[in-house]
Design a protein around this nucleic acid. Structure first.
Lengths: 160, 160
DNA sequence: CAAATATAAGAATTTTATTCTTTTCATTTA
DNA sequence: TAAATGAAAAGAATAAAATTCTTATATTTG
């Protein structure tokens, strides 16, 4: 889990291609970067082993699975500082995609996907209500998602 | 972009495996599901073509690229209804990972990754300030991310 | 019930990944 | 400055996987 691993230009180029299309094959990366496949393979393995690349995900259309509603919920909790039980309880709910411990208000911001508003209400009644430390929640409904990428800014043709 | 494409159990199983590891190969999916590789291949292509699978991403450790600060920013904008220019302007900023048009307050919720708070301030001064319709912003800093997955809930061993 | 269509299986071919060996290049040391 | 050392990459050979093509088996449709 060494995050102070030194990345060079070739590493950045590999990350850029992988971020665009995680199913690109080794030989295509090599062709694109003008290198030997064996060199690319070693680097990819090292990037995985050093936890620079964490995983490879297929991004699935939520609507195709009938999950048409996206919501962000602010949750105020009575946790002590450093006591992460509420966050972990929230993270254990499958419909909860993200849980962030946020500054101020002893709160969490969670991102939830459900079929519709009825399913959201049901989820909050069944799952959220069972988490003891939750004091209050404030739900924000998403009308339309304009952008949703996990892509990071990768340094370009200059520094190492 | 047909989202009313009918998915059966095998499709769900493929999506489940792909969601876990997008770099799984065709033959391994086939082995796992006890089917022929050719059958799997056809289905994966169809899932892509029907926009059930949108893309394949490598999830990169933000800290490895020096992007240690995650923030959510609520943005109040003076857009007319249906006029999505502010959202599109926000989406064009590389550090902005997500832009959601939210109910109430004529606002957007955006997710931003920067190196640190200084870089966030600089980004808001340089990029956000150039977007004319923005009235006000409220920034929420993430102290710790407990969960961050794009994985969707996939129906299990029962209905089609 | 027969024809048409869709789906899957199996074999053959092409492509890709992996391993191993050699070469190159940079760094160190005498 | 020249030889020695080590790291990285290239290239060839092998193993594995993907793709295509043909054939078979259900499932619909007239």
């Amino acid at each position: 889990m060494n995050i102070e691993y030194h990345l060079d230009r070739v590493d950045y180029d590999i990350l850029r291609l992988m971020q665009e299309n995680a199913r690109i094959n080794n030989a295509d990366i090599a062709r694109e970067l003008g290198m030997a496949p064996s060199a690319i393979l070693e680097r990819v393995k090292k990037l995985e082993q050093k936890a620079v690349i964490l995983q490879y995900n297929a991004k699935i259309n939520p609507a195709a699975l009938g999950q048409k509603l996206l919501s962000f919920i602010f949750i105020r909790a009575a946790d002590g500082i450093g006591c992460a039980t509420t966050g972990q309880a929230l993270a254990a709910i499958p419909e909860v995609q993200e849980v962030h411990d946020i500054a101020g208000d002893d709160g969490y911001l969670v991102k939830v996907r459900t079929a519709d508003s009825a399913a959201l209400v049901e989820l909050m009644r069944s799952s959220f209500a069972k988490i003891p430390n939750i004091i209050s929640t404030r739900t924000t409904i998403v009308l339309e998602t304009v952008k949703e990428e996990q892509k990071l800014v990768i340094p370009s043709e200059q520094q190492e």
